[in-house]
Nucleic acid binder design. Structure first.
Length: 593
RNA sequence: GCCCGAGUGGCGCAAUGGUAGCGCAACUGACUUGUAAUCAGUAGGUUGUAGGUUCGAGUCCUAUCUCGGGCUCCA
């Protein structure tokens, strides 16, 4: 059995075995070898191939790999000079590329598998292909990838392989993939009647009644929390003349990402891809004093961004979305405190959904604009804040990855397949106020330039809801559930009481569904269960007589003889407390902080 | 944009180049029910779109649209 610590070694060795198999597969034709690194679930290898590999070729390739392993071919390591390496790989253009970029004094090693396949490699490897015999691997997929990840370079064929120390562990991973499918928001969303996307509007979701309730609930919460914290909501034009973005500077940088149109009188209009320029127009409307700061103009307008084809992904990558946006105007001295305030909001929001995220700090790029001293000071402040909140190592730093207008902190989350997505972000902007030539009057009666903090907490509502669906597998916490209570009268004679229960719950702002159809109660229950309604209340003779409800819980089990008043108390409590778990009796109600 | 794969009634699926079927949902009727699918019947598609090959195309070819996996991981 191969020990866990050798995982990278044999994954790497398997990559060479794959490369040898691919070489054999194409026979005399030249296979150009690029790179073959390990990844979380195995490894991949990039090749320049005479023709693409398809899924139909997988079994043959796997068979070739197994043969090489069974043969027990040794991995032979050899140290060579740069010139020797260049000579050995003279027909391998990507290897030559790599060798040429190595420092002159670098120790270069090559590995030969058996006696007929040599690859440039740092190693280490197993001693013999037999050593990976107990390992389990499976060719997963292919894709095209550009050499060095740059679309101007050659397009290569990438082959992905799942690789684990044993059959059991591989099966575990495949089971995880199956489980992920059951959480996939693209399947669950339409199934739960939350949203769908039609091909007439790619990447632009239709929100159905249930999905709209979800959006409204999390936005209501957002508005309440932000109004408390001194935010003021505005709404601005979705369609603007392009001169707006010429002023902001976006026209040069972002034009390709915009949906534009020309009017009869030759004006060019565009759908706004971000809110900031419009926020500046509002700011410019009058003269501002430092006494107003931080001045926080929030808005949740719909934005449009044109994506390259092949980039869309359900709700996680769309072309039309709403941001829970705000532009906070602050003095340079207020940056640190305001960023802290914003991260407080983020913690409150992510906490309430039971979600965990990882912060990332992106620092000054080469093409930065503005004063270096301001950049340095701001970055130091952001680092201090992150150190204090998340501890050293509790966040990632992407050096040089900030926007040209300022450093930023991103909030990164993972979807059901472990793919990373940015949700929230806090971006400092030293440049936009200059482009729009805005100022504020400082205490000493001089005009100063404000700093803008662009920030979103949810990020895009669409993306956030996509992640919410996956997080909860569609079984949302009570307070955001699109349908909170499903009401099932057993026979027609219970309909009157059912209507009364419905009315009372509505009066308490509970989202209910009432099924007065004369179909079987089992059908009604099934229906609500499929929608993952948290509470299904069943009403029959007994309930009518005692003014009670019977509850069928989403996650199993029932409760009987619950006084109607108590049930309403339970619902109200969960709406207020916003708890993640369903309470099952009125006794579980605790004081709300 | 690039490579591979996929598009069949609202949804999930089937159909060796030879008459497009099934389940769920919908609709009608019967049943009047105590916690996840009562029974019977009816209707609904010409297979993403546009061409082509063929006596004949859901199936083969070309183009196009949309969707899915991937295009950050660096010998």
């Amino acid at each position: 059995m191969i020990e866990e610590q050798y995982l990278p070694v044999y994954r790497h060795s398997l990559a060479h075995i794959l490369a040898k198999a691919v070489q054999k597969f194409f026979g005399d034709e030249t296979v150009q070898l690029a790179i073959g690194p390990q990844i979380d679930n195995g490894f991949y290898y990039d090749f320049g191939l005479p023709h693409p590999i398809t899924e139909a070729d997988f079994p043959a390739l796997e068979k070739l790999m197994t043969e090489i392993i069974k043969k027990g071919e040794p991995f032979t390591r050899k140290e060579v000079t740069k010139d020797e390496a260049l000579a050995i790989f003279k027909d391998q253009k990507y290897k030559v590329d790599i060798i040429n970029e190595l420092p002159a004094d670098e120790l270069i090693t090559i590995y030969t598998t058996g006696d007929d396949f040599t690859d440039l490699c740092r190693g280490p490897h197993v001693a013999n292909t037999k050593d990976v015999q107990s390992a389990a691997f499976k060719i997963a997929s292919t894709s095209s990838a550009y050499w060095r990840g740059d679309e101007h370079n050659d397009s290569l064929q990438r082959i992905y392989v799942y690789a684990y120390p044993s059959k059991g562990e591989l099966k575990e991973y495949l089971d995880f993939l199956a489980e992920a499918k059951a959480r996939d928001h693209r399947i669950l969303g339409p199934q739960l009647d939350l949203f769908f996307i039609d091909q007439m509007a790619p990447g632009m979701p239709y929100w159905l009644p249930r999905g709209m309730r979800l959006i409204n609930t999390i936005l209501d919460f957002w508005r309440d929390e932000h109004e408390t914290r001194g935010y003021q909501e505005v709404a601005t034009p979705l369609l603007n003349k392009n001169s707006l973005w010429i002023t902001s500077g976006h026209w040069d940088h972002y034009r390709d990402g915009m949906f534009c149109m020309e009017t009869e009188d030759k004006d060019v209009y565009g759908l706004k891809p971000m809110n900031c320029p419009n926020s500046l127009i509002i700011y410019k409307r009058k003269r501002h004093s430092y006494k107003e700061f931080p001045l926080r103009y929030s808005d949740c307008d719909v934005l449009h961004r044109k994506e390259k084809s092949g980039e869309l992904n359900g709700l996680l990558r769309v072309q039309m979305f709403r941001q829970d946006d705000s532009h906070n105007y602050v003095t340079e001295d207020q940056i640190a405190e305001e960023v802290n305030n914003i991260l407080d909001i983020a913690d409150r929001f992510y906490g309430i959904f039971g979600m965990t995220y990882r912060p990332e700090l992106s620092t000054r790029p080469d093409d930065y604009m503005g004063e270096l001293s301001l950049w340095n000071r701001a970055e130091a402040e952001l680092k201090a804040i992150l150190d204090k909140r998340y501890g050293e190592g509790g966040y990632d730093i992407n050096e040089g990855d900030g926007a040209f207008y300022g450093p930023k902190i991103d909030i990164i989350m993972k979807d059901c397949l472990g793919r990373q997505w940015q949700t929230g972000t806090v971006q400092l902007d030293f440049q936009l106020p200059r482009n729009f030539n805005v100022c504020y009057v400082a205490a000493d009666n001089t005009e100063k330039i404000p700093v803008i903090i662009h920030r979103v907490i949810y990020g895009s509502l669409e993306r956030f809801i996509g992640l919410l669906i996956e997080q909860f597998k569609g079984a949302f916490p009570f307070w955001i559930a699109p349908s909170q209570v499903g009401i099932v009268p057993i026979r027609a004679e219970h309909n009157e009481y059912a209507k009364e229960v419905a009315k009372l719950l509505r009066r308490n702002h509970i989202h209910i569904e009432l099924d007065l159809d004369d179909s079987h109660m089992n059908n009604k229950i099934k229906n609500y269960k499929n929608y993952k309604v948290p509470y299904i209340v069943v009403l029959g003779d007994k309930e009518v007589a005692d003014r009670t409800v019977s509850i069928n819980f989403r996650d199993g089990g029932q409760a009987h003889d619950i006084p109607l008043d108590d049930f309403i108390k339970m619902c109200n409590y969960m709406n207020e407390a916003k708890c993640l778990d369903l309470i099952k009796s009125v006794d579980e109600i605790k004081p709300i902080e």
